[in-house]
Amino acid sequence: MYKFFLYAMLIIIYLGLAKALSPSEIGIHYLQNERGFSKLIKGDLATVILVDTHATGFLIKTYYQKYRVISGYDTVEELIVRTSKEFAQKNLKHIGLSLYRKTDVSEEFLPLPPGSIYMGNREFGDWSKNKKGESRWIFHKAFKNFPRYLGWGTFRPTREFYQELKSKVSLNQPYFGPNGEFGPNGKVTRENFPQFFKDERMKKVEMKTLLIEYFKENF
């Protein structure tokens, strides 16, 4: 009994020390849920886009998420956090969407297409009519890289898109674009976040294939 107690103590000490001192635990923040963004994101007019998500571990999984943090007047940064299982799984269908937005006066946690915080803000851009007579949101020259940062590619939102987005926000519902352009099944997201949609990450490998590849590589 004494030895068992000693052994249990040893395991607790190891776990405690590893948690407190291990370099892999230092520098990566933990995000329980979307409310945790408030502490992590410092800049104003910031939007946080979910870029990638990954789970490590065999029996007990650790969930990681990679975000692109775009602050209106500051730099673009990447942020890697550990998250809870619930939060990670809930946001699997929100890849490429903005999960958090922060303005001077408010915070939003609804998953929306990236850049929604800047649409309609004349400091960042304006509505401009194209040859077809469609009115689209165009960023000012100072923010010409924003469509790339936001993962828009060649996509430019129309006024209808903006109106629909606002109505979804008022209903407190996530929005994926009029034709589902954003999110894991959206064309725009798939084109502009290729890392997450790489073939080797998407395909499910059967055990038989795995074994054949193993024997080919090793013998």
Binding site: I13, L17, A18, L21, P23
Partner: peptide, 19 residues
Amino acid sequence: TVYCIQVLLKTILSLIIFP
């Protein structure tokens, strides 16, 4: 410092695994 911490952690881990 990080190295010494890693050594300590590995030593404790060895004490757990060896039995």
